[in-house]
């Protein structure tokens, strides 16, 4: 797939998402949390980009910013040739048909007071001129597509199991035939047995509908299963971006190495030999990131320059990007 010279569907350039902190007697702005601090990447049409990182590194924020569910602080997000980061509200609203999101918590992301059919039909009503009957047909079609029993159309979300609810969420996301879907930890809240079903469903839909995914997860093995390329985030920045097989076989960035060394191996004989890299210290607060390289406080291979200058995010090998001073010499 990578061999084909595909056009990027999504181009993210220097995206920044800073959340203000209010404090003091008058609730004035006293600082900001740099949840996403200048990241860039492309997603090609039809591919799945995995976005991994530990909790709090800003990966969900990236997902939401890319769809402009947050008002981004800086940078641009071009989807299908349109910069949505700067689009006017009404324009943006229409662009939303092209991009959708699947949320982590299927329970919380569905309005508890709306029936399944209403939830799925709502975007249709909003964006496409249609009669109730037409919408009904489309809703049932979508329910078939995601493997939901048609008879359940008039039930409320709380009457479903977790996996079924996530299917409702997927059906809802598909309603307007989007090209690009952000999957924000879509399986994290599900039982392991259900996880596989949902992931398979996502893969199946990608195949049949030609979807492009940004798949956000902290589950490295699931990402390995579904993603074509993988980006690793640490403290608001992408430290490494590479094709899946490369990154798993030969991680470049010290953080990626540490992260991947934590993945349990299914084979006990291999598992025994794995040398785990244990990182010391805590992740710094995104409100006060360290000077220089974000990872310098915990990096096992830290150098003086790391504490001074921010490393550039550069292509160290064709298709492989790393942000680390260790690769300064290479290019």
């Amino acid at each position: 797939m990578l061999d084909d010279q595909k056009q990027p569907l999504v181009t993210v350039d220097n995206l920044k998402m800073h959340f203000p902190i209010f404090g003091g007697l008058l609730q004035r702005r006293t600082g900001e949390v740099k949840a996403v601090d200048g990241i860039s990447f492309d997603i090609f049409e039809g591919e799945t980009l995995g976005l991994v990182g530990e909790s709090g590194c800003g990966k969900s924020t990236v997902g939401r910013s890319v769809l402009r569910l947050y008002e981004v602080t800086d940078g641009s997000v071009v989807i299908d040739g349109q910069d949505i980061a700067k689009a006017a509200p009404e324009e943006l609203r229409h662009m939303r048909t092209q991009m959708q999101m699947i949320f982590q918590d299927p329970q919380a992301s569905l309005n508890p007071r709306m029936k399944v059919a209403e939830i799925i039909a709502e975007p249709l009503r909003e964006h496409i001129k249609s009669t109730p009957a037409e919408r009904r047909t489309r809703v049932l079609e979508l329910m078939d597509q995601v493997g939901l029993n048609r008879d359940f159309a008039n039930r409320y979300p709380h009457e479903f199991s977790g996996g079924q609810r996530q299917r409702i969420g997927i059906a809802r996301a598909l309603a307007l035939n989007p090209k690009f879907i952000v999957c924000d930890e879509p399986i994290a809240a599900l039982d392991v047995s259900i996880q596989a079903q949902v992931v398979n469903l996502l893969e199946e839909l990608q195949e049949t509908l030609g979807l492009t995914y940004l798949f956000i997860s902290h589950d490295l093995s699931m990402v390995r299963h579904i993603a074509d390329r993988v980006a690793v985030m640490y403290l608001g920045r992408i430290v490494e971006l590479a094709p899946r097989d490369d990154i798993y076989a030969d991680p470049q960035h010290p953080y990626t190495k540490a992260l991947l060394s934590a993945v349990p191996e299914p084979d006990p004989s291999v598992e025994e030999k794995v040398e785990r890299i244990i990182l010391t210290g805590d992740v710094p607060s995104p409100a006060k990131p360290p000077q220089g390289c974000n990872f310098c406080t915990r990096c096992p291979a830290v150098k003086d320059i790391c504490k001074r200058d921010e490393p550039e995010f550069r292509e160290v090998q064709p298709g492989r990007f790393v942000a680390c001073h260790r690769f300064n010499d290479i290019t």
């Binding site: 229409h94 999101m101 992301s109 307007l176």
Partner: peptide, 9 residues
């Protein structure tokens, strides 16, 4: 957030 993502007014 879902509702916003749906592109509702």
């Amino acid at each position: 957030r879902t509702a916003r993502a749906k592109g509702l007014k």
